[in-house]
């Protein structure tokens, strides 16, 4: 029993998690992609995506989740997100200024509008989701070390 408990929660929780995690991620993507036309954006969407991974981890246990989602990937994605954001900002120099919105802004309230804002949202969401997940993993792994010593 203890062994089983160590590997995550009960079957019901695991099944429900498996069914809902996809929707949560989808909702996060929706929030990110509509960040420039409605409330939300890269940060909020990124948090939702990070929460879906944390949700997986809570249901299935540390070992199982870390096998599928190595936390190195999180730190790499985080750096990529930051570099992407910086790159978008630096590309503004093509129009003459740092952070310039150099893509045509299009019509308001359309999905493809607002120039670089959606791209920035995507970059931020990478950074935030990977970062929050990495923080969570770091805290969890730290706890593992303590338990080992005792």
């Amino acid at each position: 029993m203890i062994q089983e408990k160590h590997k995550g929660m009960s079957l019901i929780v695991k099944t429900i998690t498996r069914l809902t995690v996809g929707f949560i991620i989808l909702y996060g993507i929706y929030i990110i992609s509509h960040g420039h036309v409605s409330p939300g954006g890269g940060f909020a969407g990124g948090v939702i995506i990070a929460l879906s991974f944390i949700h997986l981890m809570l249901a299935y246990g540390k070992e199982e989740t870390l096998k599928r989602l190595p936390h190195n990937a999180a730190s790499i994605l985080e750096s990529i997100g930051a570099l992407l954001f910086l790159m978008i900002a630096v590309l503004g120099f093509t129009g003459g200024s740092f952070f310039l919105n150099f893509i045509p802004k299009g019509e308001p309230f359309r999905l493809f509008s607002a120039g670089i804002i959606p791209l920035c949202n995507v970059a931020i969401s990478f950074k935030v989701s990977a970062g929050l997940f990495a923080i969570f993993v770091a805290l969890v792994l730290l706890k593992l070390d303590t338990e080992k010593k005792e």
Partner: peptide
């Protein structure tokens, strides 16, 4: 005038590039 943002861009790019590679 374009020299001014460089003081933020260069170290930031260096930091994240470094953590990547």
């Amino acid at each position: 005038v374009n020299i001014i943002p460089m003081f933020v861009i260069v170290p930031l790019a260096g930091a994240f590039l470094n953590s990547l590679v």
